[in-house]
Design a protein around this nucleic acid. Structure first.
Lengths: 196, 196, 196, 196
DNA sequence: CATGAATGAGCGTTCATTCAT
DNA sequence: CATGAATGAACGCTCATTCAT
């Protein structure tokens, strides 16, 4: 068990070092040597745990980002009211991003760029997140809370984009204000925009 | 004048070639040789008009993107009603992006990545665009159309993010639907969300 | 004794795995990991039995190739007639190579390349084999079977080269014909070429 | 014209540097940096003239080796008597190899190794040379000089192998004797071996 | 004896940039 | 102004070898 733990530790250390490096320099500018130095391992060691540099980025999405989405899913499943759900999602998103700003930076600043080649990697796209949002909106429609004529597949993207940009702006501003303060205004905007 | 004209032509050809190349391959993957080939000039020629590769990208923002923003500004200045203005801005944004998909691709997919180093280049940020949006919202408040308690600096970013993501999704989907169709639902969402 | 036996088994397994790997991928392309996998041991274990990768190749020559030469020597010592001896050597060479195609591949395809650095390792050269051939020719001269004016040190190399290339061609052709069939024509060519 | 000349010069300088480097260190041990240093160019320059390191080796065969074979072909075409032809070929081979020992080293010591991956590159094999030899033998049969029952496809390989090994031995001995002296004994061996 | 995780030197290759023509 | 051949720094990745367990 100690052995397994240790191995996971190293893999995790590398992945976190990658997140930190990618956040600081950007995916392309960050070198494997940067990640290795940050992780306190030799460059070659990275290749014992990841196929290549791309695999590092992809793994971050698969393991870190998707974990967030699943966690959001789980936490929201307890709430029945779709309007409250949407509001909670805004809070969760901003609070978690604020808690993990490096991951947020990778997520925000590298994702777009990456989505290019990530079209090829099904697990790395945001479909699951878009679907989570879309489902909440549809629930709200069935609960009579949201308008029936709302174009869900357009709105779910708009909603995500609004959250995304909010985080990006915060990052680019140097994280010099409380991101969570943006939650209520945003939630308010959307729930009003969607209401009957 | 003919000489000047000719020079500008070449500079423009290079810039358009850069837009096309960056759109197709991404900024980092596109090479100067790609841009040169696309522009029909020698690689060295590019350095007669631009300081370096970064300068090419920065110039695209400074000259192409800012031109769009100014044009939006001009067109919207004729409209008095802030709610209509906001709606028109959504239309303008989506219609223009649809008309210039390569520029849109650079704008959408490279911008985030680039904003990193673009923090250093004041002219390349989106402040002007954010301000344009913010001003409209404040106008609407003064006209009694939008709620007074709206947190403008949060909402303007959300608004931009929604537009941005709408275009990005369209690009990543392969531009296989009419982007302008998204305008009304989006405009509707935001004007309702902001209304008294 | 059982212990010793076991140890020798492992050393042999590694050496045979090396022969198989070098034959399939070539010396430089084959990795220690390949050899280890093929031998069913850990990579580090190889270094308990061999100094390094080069030593593996050298040992193959020292132990496997030299064994063949000794065996040829032994078998031919029973035959008195030099012309028959030469003919038998051709048969032995081709038959044994056909029986051990992987060893043949290492011998043929890697030997040249290797002889470069093998100049440094006296035991790995083919002097013994050349001498075996040369001795037979000289025997034939003393027996009055071969011409006296034959330049032995030239002919023994030619003879070896002819055998060598015959095997190489067979290997590169994918071993898709019976190598032993080449024996009589070759033996015939040389015995006629050398006869009074 | 001066320009073209200069360009060819550089390409040639690189190719000759490659021949020298591959001869000295072996293909795998020689680095691109070695070749560049030897050629007096930057490493990157090599890639303006050759696709990659493999392409360098392949080009040597295509352009240098095949040129020799064609030259041999041309020179032998003037000779009618097949027995004399075969004898001349032996001389040509050894004399040319002695004149170009680096090329010979690449040819001899790297060819085997390379034939592995060179199976994929039709132009790099020795079929043309084997055919040249085979044709001469068949001519000799038609001229009544060589035995009809000779197995040509076996003998042509043996003949090549004999030449090949003669050169290799000379190279490994440090080129410390006159290679051309081997020509007569070899030619004699083969013409006698083939005669009626 | 055996393991296999870790190392890090080393190499092929790319490409932004320069500059002689 | 324009060219494009030449440069060389930089980086991802491999793999022989070591050594703590």
């Amino acid at each position: 068990m100690a052995r397994v733990k240790k191995t996971n530790d190293k893999r995790d250390r590398i992945m976190n070092a990658a997140i930190a490096s990618f956040a600081q320099y950007g995916y392309h500018q960050a070198t494997i040597a940067d990640v290795a130095r940050e992780a306190g391992v030799a460059a070659g060691t990275i290749y014992l745990y990841f196929k290549n540099k791309d695999d590092l980025l992809i793994s971050i999405f698969e393991e870190k980002v998707q974990r967030f989405i699943q966690e959001f899913h789980r936490q929201l499943s307890r709430e029945k009211n779709a309007q409250v759900k949407l509001s909670k999602l805004v809070h969760l998103h901003l609070v978690e991003m604020q808690k993990h700003p490096d991951l947020a930076a990778v997520f925000q600043l590298e994702l777009r760029q990456s989505r290019h080649f990530m079209s090829a990697y099904p697990k790395t796209d945001l479909k699951v997140y878009f679907d989570l949002i879309g489902d909440i909106i549809e629930e709200g429609q069935q609960q009579g809370l949201f308008r029936k004529d709302v174009y869900v597949s357009a709105i779910k993207r708009a909603f995500f984009g609004a959250l995304d940009e909010t985080v990006t702006s915060w990052l680019l501003a140097g994280k010099n204000y409380d991101l969570a303060h943006m939650a209520d205004p945003l939630a308010d905007l959307f729930t009003r925009g969607l209401r009957e």
